[in-house]
Nucleic acid binder design. Structure first.
Lengths: 227, 227
DNA sequence: CGTACCATTGACGACGGTCAAAAAACGTGG
DNA sequence: CCACGTTTTTTGACCGTCGTCAATGGTACG
């Protein structure tokens, strides 16, 4: 199901949303944002499940969402993390191949696919923009593939730097997701991720004041580890 | 560089090509094919290198191409295999993130990006089709990510079935690529791939009359292995 | 303050990598 | 068509990385 039990308080017209997430309301105002609805999600709330009809496109306003696939034996693979500003649900499949869940309290702009497609057929810029968004997604997924062939320390180092580039600074980052999510994204176990972070701390490469907070005390060493 | 030392004999206008590769020259004739040039590639010939400007889109006519990335320590990751009919080079990046090489003698339709973009801006159907092609690529790359978190036997089994779906029959397949390429695609070593295939043969799941030919003697067991 | 949940650490084992050699397959020229 | 050299594939022995299982420690929240 999709957004089934979200009550009316969770939904509001995007135009009535006033906390400044609209990127550039001026000249090149994003047409995607004129046909969507804002939805609030609580931690671990499922946005859509594997197999659901792909009826919407999503744009993150705040918080974090993971897409993932559960295997019969309980293993889970995380396909991607989406943070403020990211657009997802771009696959034109009939049904979603992964499910999407909120990692923590999040707000998402939900854009109905039919309205979007109608817009794309009228407005060539929209069609090209959808293509552009999809190629960005493709590039990230390619990077994910490259990540998965590396060693554990390389994966962790690459991940920290990549996440820092999106939500952190050059000297630190607050990880929006727990260890388990990082592990399932990197194709490792929670224990290996934890051990690797401890090793990096012991080597003086990072500091871990809190488990979610990473301080880069030797960024060069991290970059080198990336391989 | 890109197709640098291919001589004029290697290039010919697509309209002059007469061996019937044009998919449907009738009602919905693919507009992509009206602005391209056919190029012949020999084994291991590089089509474009990592970092080259992404100036073209490519459509496989015959043969097989791999996209890959070389790491400083000699490791190599293969991003995808492209076989007859496949379109690649869809990333809208300034530069290619992977290189592309012919696995064996191949013929490729080369479509200049500027002409393509001009067409996409005029013809909305073309823009939407490019999007559709990109989402297909995205789906395959997602599947690749899922593949890379499995165990070695699972990866090999999944690979065999996936390739058979594209170029083989339900009972056999002739692998267009050597073991080394399969290994670098699956994130394993050549030895592990070879050993796994030998194990599958010993278990009666497959037969290997020649190293490139796989006969599925127990397809059910293979499907089950896929996990 | 107690109770979950999450993260860390330890001990151990298995899967897959590495190094090395043998065997097959392939291509080339006599 | 066969002999030869090269490349690819297979097989073997051994080792390291990472997964598994289990216990402990930390943190958030009621």
């Amino acid at each position: 199901m999709c957004l089934g039990n979200s009550n009316s308080r969770d939904r509001e017209l995007v135009v009535s949303d006033g906390d400044g997430w609209i990127s550039t309301p001026s000249i090149d105002h994003d047409p995607l944002e004129s046909i969507g609805t804002v939805v609030s999600l609580t931690r671990n709330r499922e946005l859509y499940a594997h197999g659901d009809p792909a009826a919407h496109l999503y744009k993150m306003i705040s918080g974090a969402v993971r897409t993932c696939k559960y295997f019969s034996d309980g293993r889970r693979q995380i396909g991607a993390f989406y943070l403020a500003g990211d657009v997802f649900g771009l696959q034109m499949d009939i049904a979603h191949t992964l499910s999407a869940e909120a990692i923590n309290s999040s707000r998402v702009l939900v854009i109905p696919r039919p309205a979007l497609m109608a817009l794309a057929e009228r407005d060539n810029d929209v069609a090209l923009r959808l293509w552009s968004l999809t190629t960005r997604e493709l590039r990230r997924t390619h990077d994910h593939v490259l990540l998965l062939m590396k060693t554990a320390p390389e994966r962790v180092a690459s991940f920290l730097l990549a996440i820092a580039e999106r939500v952190g600074t050059s000297s630190s980052v607050d990880l929006p997701m727990p260890r388990r999510d990082i592990a399932d994204y990197l194709g490792l176990t929670m224990e290996t991720v934890s051990r690797t972070l401890s090793d990096l701390q012991a080597a003086g490469t990072i500091k871990l004041p809190r488990s979610q907070r990473i301080v880069f005390s030797n960024r060069t060493a991290l970059e080198r580890l990336k391989s």
